[in-house]
Design a protein around this nucleic acid. Structure first.
Lengths: 337, 337
DNA sequence: AACGACACCGCAAACGTTTGCAGTTGAAGG
DNA sequence: CCTTCAACTGCAAACGTTTGCGGTGTCGTT
C-alpha cells in the first residue's frame, strides 16, 4: 500500500538487465542496442516511470530548483512578480519554491535555512521590512549560491538586483499633471523612512522644480492608506487655495482622495486631477478610472529570474554585479484628463 | 569557487572520526560520548552545517514537501489560499512547491509530472477550468500520494476536498436583502456551465422561494464581469418595474452595477441595495462600501493542508474520503443597509 | 585458428545521510 | 590472566541515478 514509485531498478529487474543499461537506454545512449532501448522505453512508458528528481539532485549536486523569498504573496504586486518568476523558471526546466516572510525577520531567516537545506541552485529575494541584519543573506553568498534581489534592495550586499525607478516614475506622473495645466499639485507621501516614500517624493519635487513650480510644504502630506487619505483630502479642501491635482503614493490613497473629493462636490478631473501608484487592480474600476503608475510586477519577476538563470547556466559567468532598473510607466485614465 | 556546502563527511574528516559518528552526535544519540558530541556540534556550528534535505529525502523516501497546483496566483482568493497553505505547512516542517496551471490543461499535466518527479509527499490541487480529463490526477493516486482538492472539485475522483458552500452563501446573501425588505431582487449570474455559477444562482432562487417571492427570469442576467455588469444594469434600469436589490456573482460585477446605478442617479442602498461575492479586496474601498460574501481563502488553504497532513503524518490513517464544506459568511457593509 | 574490432552490457563508485551490526577499547570481576 | 561487560565508534549497505571502465560475445579478417 505504500509508495508505488517506479524506479530504474524496477525496470531493470523486470527486464533482467542492469540499472545502468536502463539508464543509458532511457537517454538513448549509443552503446545500447535498439532492441533493448525499445524494451526499456516501452516498459517505462507502461509503468509510468518518472525519473526521481531527488536522486538526480543528489547525484549532480544541483537541484534545478530556485528559491523565492517574498514578503506577502497576497499583495497583487508580489503575486504578479511570482507569476513572472514561475513562467521563466518553468521554461528553463526549473522548479520554484516560494517562501513567505510575512514581513518578519525571524521567518525570513528560517526561510533561508529551509532553502539552503533544500540545496536550491539560486535564490530570489525581496527582504522583509523588518530585516536590518543580513547574516542569513551573507550565508547564501558564502555558499556560492547565486542570489538576485528584487524590488527591495540592500546596498550593503553586493548582488544582482532589479528595481523600479520610483523616482523617475513619480517624476513622470507629476509631469503628466503639469502638462495638463495643473499648477498647484499636492502629494500624498509614503513613510519618509522608507526608500519608496522618499524616492517618490523626490521625483514629485523634481518635476515641480523643472517646471519652475514652487514646492509647497503644506501640499506634501504623509498619507499612505485609505483612511489617512480621507483625512488628508479634507485637510486640503479646507485650505483657502485649493490644489488642482493630487499625486498619491499608492492607489488606495488615491481612491480615498477621490471619494472624499466627490463627497465634497469636487469634479474629477475637471477641478482636481488625481494620479495614483499602482499596487492592485483597483485603477480600472473606480469612477472615473484612475490614472496610475504601472509597476510591471510580472516583468520584474521575469527579469530577475533571467538574471539568476544567466549565472546558474554558465557557471563561469562572472560579470560584475548588475543593477537592472525597470521603467514603470504611467497609464493615463480618466482621473487626470 | 564552486559549491561550498558543508557535509557530514567534511566534519568527519576534519575531526578524524567517521561520518556515522558525526551523524549520531548531531542527533544526540546515547552511544556517543559527550566529548565527541560537543566537538561535533561546535564544528558544525562554526561551519554553518545544514543537513542536506535532498540526501534525506532520498534516504527516507519522503521529501517533507507538498506540492500545490493552482490556476492563477494573482487572484486574491488563490493567493490567500496559498498563504493558508504555507503557514500550516511551515509549522509542520514542510516545504511547499507551488505550480501555476494558468488555467491550462497541458500546463497542469506538466505540473503534476514535475511534482511527482520531485517526489512530493502530498498534493493540493485546484484544477484548471480547461481540465476535463483526469489521467494525470489518477496517476497521483496510483502512486499512493495523498491528494486534497480545494475550491474546485471533481466528483469523478475520490479524494478529500474542501469547498465553500456557494449555494448556502448566496442563499444568505439573498436572504439578507429580503430581510431588509427588498422584494424585487435581481441576480447577475455567473456562467451556467460552471458549478460556481449554478450553485450561486440556485441559492438565490431558493431564498426567494422560501420567502414566497417569485423567481422572475428577466431579473436573472448572466453577467460576471465589470463590463457586462454595466450593460446588465442599464438593461435593468430600462425596465418599467425597477428592482430594489441586486445580488451579483462577484464583486467586480457588483461594482460595475453600483457605478452604473449611481451614474443614473439611483441612491444605494436607499433605492437599490447591492450585494457582491468577494474575490478581491475591493469591498472596503467602494462608496458606499460593498456588502459581500467573504470566501475565507486563508481558511480554505489551512484546512486543506491540515487534511493532507493528517494522512501524511499517520500513514495508516485510512478514514474514508472526507468533504469539508466551509461556511462563507456575509459581511454587511454600506451598500445594503 | 588466432586475432582484433566492434557492439553491447554490467560492475562499482559516487552524491549525503542513516542505521543495524560488528568491532575496539578499557576496566572491572572472577 | 582470562572473561565479561559497557561504552564508544566504525563498517557497510541502502535510497535512485549516472558514468568510467572493463568485460563478454560475435563477427570478419588474416
Amino acid at each position: 500500500m505504500s509508495s508505488n514509485q517506479v524506479t530504474i531498478k524496477d525496470i531493470a529487474r523486470i527486464l533482467g538487465i542492469s540499472a545502468s543499461t536502463v539508464s543509458r537506454a532511457l537517454k538513448n545512449h549509443p552503446d545500447i542496442s535498439e532492441a533493448t532501448k525499445q524494451a526499456v522505453n516501452e516498459l517505462a512508458q507502461k509503468l509510468n516511470y518518472e525519473p526521481n528528481a531527488v536522486a538526480l539532485s543528489l547525484k549532480h549536486n544541483r537541484s534545478n530548483t530556485i528559491g523565492v523569498i517574498i514578503p506577502e504573496i497576497v499583495h497583487y504586486f508580489f503575486s504578479s512578480v511570482i507569476s513572472g518568476i514561475e513562467d521563466v523558471a518553468y521554461d528553463a526546466g526549473f522548479t520554484v519554491i516560494i517562501c513567505q516572510s510575512n514581513e518578519r525577520y525571524d521567518r525570513e531567516v528560517a526561510n533561508v535555512k529551509a532553502l539552503l537545506s533544500h540545496r536550491v541552485d539560486g535564490v530570489l529575494v525581496a527582504i522583509s521590512k523588518e530585516t536590518h541584519q543580513y547574516d542569513h543573506l551573507f550565508a547564501i553568498q558564502d555558499r556560492n549560491v547565486p542570489m538576485v534581489f528584487f524590488d527591495r534592495v540592500i546596498p550593503e550586499i553586493e548582488a544582482d538586483h532589479v528595481i523600479i525607478d520610483d523616482r523617475k516614475a513619480s517624476y513622470e506622473a507629476t509631469k503628466h499633471l503639469i502638462d495638463g495645466g495643473r499648477k498647484r499639485i499636492a502629494h500624498f507621501a509614503g513613510p519618509q523612512n522608507l526608500s519608496i516614500g522618499i524616492e517618490r517624493r523626490i521625483g514629485y519635487e523634481q518635476a515641480l522644480k523643472d517646471a519652475n513650480l514652487p514646492v509647497i510644504p503644506e501640499l506634501i502630506i504623509e498619507a499612505d492608506s485609505f483612511e489617512k487619505a480621507i483625512k488628508a483630502t479634507n485637510k486640503l479642501l479646507d485650505m483657502e487655495n485649493l490644489p488642482d491635482g493630487i499625486f498619491a503614493v499608492n492607489d488606495l490613497t488615491a481612491i480615498g482622495a477621490m471619494q472624499t473629493l466627490q463627497k465634497r462636490g469636487i469634479k474629477i478631473p475637471k477641478q482636481i486631477a488625481v494620479v495614483g501608484f499602482s499596487d492592485g487592480r483597483f485603477s480600472g474600476i473606480t469612477d472615473p478610472t484612475l490614472t496610475s503608475v504601472d509597476q510591471h510586477g510580472y516583468e520584474m519577476g521575469s527579469v530577475a529570474t533571467k538574471m539568476l538563470l544567466r549565472r546558474l547556466l554558465n557557471p563561469n559567468y562572472d560579470a560584475p554585479v548588475q543593477s537592472h532598473v525597470l521603467d514603470a510607466n504611467l497609464i493615463v485614465r480618466g482621473s487626470s484628463v
